[in-house]
Nucleic acid binder design. Sequence first.
DNA 1: GTGAGACCACCTCC
DNA 2: CGGAGGTGGTCTCA
Length: 251
Amino acid sequence: MESFLNRPSCDNNSRCPQKRVKLQSDEGMKPGEVDEEDEFSHPVPWQKIESEGLDCDYALLLCKDEADKMFKQLEEEVVYSTGEDATVQVFGKVHSIPRKQAAYGDAGLTYTYSGVTRLACTWTPTLEYIRDVVTNTTGQTFNFVLVNRYKDGQDHMGEHRDDEKELDPFCPIASVSLGAARDLIFRHRDARGKRAHRQIKPVKLELAHGSLLLMNSPTNTFWYHSLPVRKKISLPRINLTFRRILLERKK
DNA sequence: GTGAGACCACCTCC
DNA sequence: CGGAGGTGGTCTCA
């Protein structure tokens, strides 16, 4: 198991809020330049996570104080799907999804989850704010965010790829984590199950409060990821996955 | 039209 | 407790 465990929260936290300085992937800023509008973000080094066909970047995007604030605001703003919208059909059986889920994005956007297409709600102020921080940090724009709330370690997400056709294949998916730290497991498609014809180590990553994980192309072509049950965890986690959805659907 | 393979879930077993 | 394997209906795509 290839493991990329977080260091404890950065020791800059006591100085928060502070100015953010240029990061490698920033556009429109010169090295060392301070972004006056993002006074809560702080400069942390990107951690490159690579394997065969896997390409991710990980960083702490928000200091603890701001991550706490974002978590609290999202708890007040986000309205999660209920009833039939909160079920999924797998192997012919209907289940409630083992977490809460909501979709926000530009007007009229739809997304498809396990065969069901739904309309995105319009952005909330906090989701817009975080979206803009991610854009300022990565140079990528997003028109959609999927919100997943895991109430405790019992809530989880099974192994899957984010390979829907409506996603812009070259735009990374930006995953922001708030609340309880949880493990994310990547597994190569050719190394899964009993008939695995290749032996490729899974990649394990702990997603910290306030962190940002960028999943770059072609990660989602070759690697599945899951958020497994962790019975010792009793606190909630909110995950935001920002995406770019193509306006014209392919046929 | 049509067959293979995938499957964001659960359970049981070790 | 955690990870692997089986599931057996429906959909998608070649």
